[in-house]
Structures are given as structure tokens and as C-alpha cells.
Design a protein around this nucleic acid. Structure first.
Lengths: 218, 218
DNA sequence: CGTCCTTTTGATGCTCCTCAAGCGCGGTGG
DNA sequence: CCACCGCGCTTGAGGAGCATCAAAAGGACG
């Protein structure tokens, strides 16, 4: 993207700093804005009338969220930790798309990637066991940390897990007790170890990878 | 989209007619083409090494499939019934996107819609009971039939279900036995009835809607 | 240092899966 | 023409995995 484009982008956006647990968009409300996360982690979710909730994804720094063709948001979004994000109002976004085709192309690529991610998550939710789900989750968090953090040697096998057990359970389609038990079992088997600051160190990436994909390797 | 655009579109595509059970794209193969379904139904899926399979969606007439930013397809696709589709090779697609911004915009909207659908399906897979899953599925198929078929009065409450029990089970994250039992239970409760030609008539849309969204109304 | 909230651990039960057998229907060949 | 076979669907019995209910332990904060 060219300099001019970036300038226009920055000009039409507004920065927000939000503490943990802040609602960014509410399911069913008019879809007036579009966001880009620049720091922290945001959770996206859908709910049933009786309160059951499914977290459909976590948006880490660099991710977009809030795109919608409908008049209203079909999902809710809330901050997990301290989050900084850029907000684009809808009309400005449309202008940007038209004026900067390269931006539109990048957006199309980003949404396509999100769709592939969603398909992977459907496989997890529909066909994996609790054990496989938690293993997949930890590896995903490790990869996300890779991309976001400065890539120091020691951080290679670290996973950032800023969300609570409730969030993890609602993301994996499990209960908090099952998540807790499974993580404990991994710890007892020395596959992972706790680290400071809501982080988990993965002691055996290959083994966890095998578990995540359903090979029954121990 | 203008006349010229449509002509270019038609020119750069090639029509294919495929019988049921034909592989359209294979998971992991180079992503060389992009498709538009013009008749019939296609299933998209992902698999685990041991053969467990999750169908991530069905593409009915009018839907796109095969978009990928990666070099290879991250999913497989196979025909459910007799399918007619248009194939666009990758380079031609890129040319089209650049030459016809309105086409790119439509594609962005289509992918965004697919993403919203995927999020809805994640809620189903992670948080709904077997009963709720099957009710949701039947209503979705009814809506899909609405959009595709000629809207005669009698077709209002008909659902088109061309796929087998195996496909339904792999779509809902259940086994074929559970799907079969649940459908039988709905039939016994006079919520649905079988119709000719792989169709199901929905006798009480409101009741099924309640079940699908988790209200325990009987 | 006490309170509150999150996490962990334990006991029990239910939903859905697994395994198994029977049914219906269309196609095939004697 | 109809018995036979194969395939998809249905139905049944039993069991496993994860949910539910309950309580204790750990951590963050004033």
C-alpha cells in the first residue's frame, strides 16, 4: 500500500484505548463501524437466548473485525485484555475501498483467511475430542504469539493465554471444568508448563501436534 | 454489474457438468481454480488423518467456492447431486478482479456472508444439542430451497435434503444414528413429514424454530 | 489479612457414540 | 417375473466422554 493510502487510512480512523471486558460491538446492533486491532486481544462471539455462548475467534494485534454486509452485526465483540484499536466509520470505509483498490484486495484476502480459519475451527468443534481441542488451542496460541511478539529464542515455545477458562471453554465448545482438567493432565504429563504473565510453555511441540491432529501418540 | 463485465465473466469461465460424488477440489492440492455453482449442491469439508470428517458447508446454486489466498486448498469439495458449475482459472480471476471493481466488491460481500454463516455454524457445533442441531439444519435447508426454487405456495414449507445421512451427520458433528433418531422423533411428533424426491415438509415452522434456538417449547 | 473471584479437583449422571441387527428399496441376473 | 444382493436408513442395547453439581484451593486486590 502506498504512502498516500496509509495517510488517508490513518486520517479516516480514530484510535481507541479500552480496558479488559469492554464491549466493542453488540450482537444485533447497527453495523456502523469497522475496526483494526493494534494491540491486545479481542474475542468475537455469538449467543443463544438462554445464555449459551460460542466464541468464534480471537482477534490479536493486526487483525480486522466488524465487517458486515447486513445492516446489523451478527456477532458480539469484547476486549480480553488492554486493547488499542482503530475505528473506521462505515461511509469512510466505503470511500477507502473505492479509492484504494489495493486496500480492498487486502481486505478480501484477510476475510478469505478468516474463512479458512473458521473452517478449521468447525473441524475442531464438530469432530475433535476435548484432549485434541485443548492441544490444538495451545498450539494456535503459540503460533499467534510467534507472529505478534518479538521473536526471541526463548519465546519460540511460549503461548500467550490472556483469556479466562470461561473464554477458552466457550471457544472450544467445552466446560471450564473439562478445560481445566485437560490442561492439568497435560501438565502432569510434562507436555506443558506454566510461565509468568498468563503464558504457557510448550515442552513438546511434536507430541502436542500429534495429539491435536488425532494421532493417539502419547 | 454491467453488460461488458458479464460478457468478460462468461468468456473467461468454462462450464462443467458433474455427476453426484465427483471430487471438485482436493484438500492440499494447488489452488488453481475458482468456481461458481449454477445448479445442484456441493459439499465442502475438512478431514483429520484418521478419516474423521467435518462438512463445513453446502454450496447451492449461485454460490462461489474455491477462493484461497494460500497456494493450496485448505478444504475438499465434492458434488452432492448433479451439479453444473463455472470454472475460472486463477490468473483470469485476478484479471477480472482488477478490471471490474464491482465484481471484487461483490466477492468481498459474498465471502463476508460466508464468514457470518460459518460463525453461526460454530455456535451450532459448539453449543447446540443434537435436537437443536437437526432442527436448525432442517430450517436452513428450507430457507435454501426458498431462494433456489420457484416460490410456489406449496413449496413454502418444503426443505430440500439431497445429501445422505452421513453428510448430514458430518455437517452437524453427530453420528448418522443420532441424526436418524432425531429426525424420526420429529416425525413422530408431527413436526415434519417426508415428501417425494428427497424433500421434507416442515409442519410447524414456529415450533422447529423454537427448538433450533434452544427454547424448550414442545 | 480478609474477601472475592478464578481455577482446580472430585463424585455422579446424562447425552450421544459405539456396536449390532433388521428394514426398505432399487438394481441385477437367473 | 421374482429372488437375490447391496446400500442407505432405522431401531435397539450398552457404554464412554464430557457435563453437571459441589466444594476446596489458589491468587489478586483493597
Amino acid at each position: 500500500m502506498d504512502e498516500e493510502g496509509l495517510a488517508a487510512l490513518a486520517h479516516s480512523s480514530r484510535q481507541l484505548l479500552l480496558p479488559p471486558g469492554t464491549t466493542i460491538v453488540e450482537e444485533g446492533e447497527p453495523a456502523l463501524a469497522f475496526f483494526n486491532v493494534t494491540r491486545g486481544t479481542v474475542k468475537l462471539f455469538k449467543s443463544l437466548p438462554d445464555g449459551r455462548r460460542q466464541i468464534t475467534g480471537f482477534a490479536d494485534a493486526g487483525q480486522f473485525l466488524g465487517l458486515s454486509t447486513a445492516q446489523t452485526y451478527s456477532f458480539g465483540a469484547e476486549t480480553v485484555d488492554n486493547v488499542r484499536l482503530c475505528r473506521f466509520m462505515r461511509p469512510q470505509l466505503e470511500t477507502l475501498l473505492t479509492d484504494y483498490p489495493s486496500f480492498e484486495r487486502r481486505l478480501l484476502a484477510a476475510v478469505t483467511d478468516k474463512l479458512a480459519e473458521a473452517q478449521e475451527q468447525m473441524l475442531l468443534l464438530g469432530r475433535k475430542t476435548a484432549r485434541e481441542k485443548v492441544a490444538s488451542f495451545l498450539l494456535d496460541r503459540m503460533k499467534a504469539f510467534h507472529q505478534t511478539a518479538n521473536r526471541r529464542q526463548e519465546a519460540e515455545t511460549l503461548a500467550s493465554v490472556p483469556m479466562t477458562r470461561v473464554d477458552i471453554a466457550d471457544y472450544l465448545g467445552l466446560t471450564i471444568e473439562t478445560v481445566s482438567r485437560t490442561i492439568s493432565a497435560f501438565r502432569r504429563s510434562h507436555l506443558i508448563a506454566s510461565a509468568e504473565n498468563h503464558r504457557i510453555r510448550i515442552l513438546s511441540v511434536p507430541t502436542l501436534t500429534n495429539i491435536a491432529s488425532g494421532q493417539k501418540a502419547e
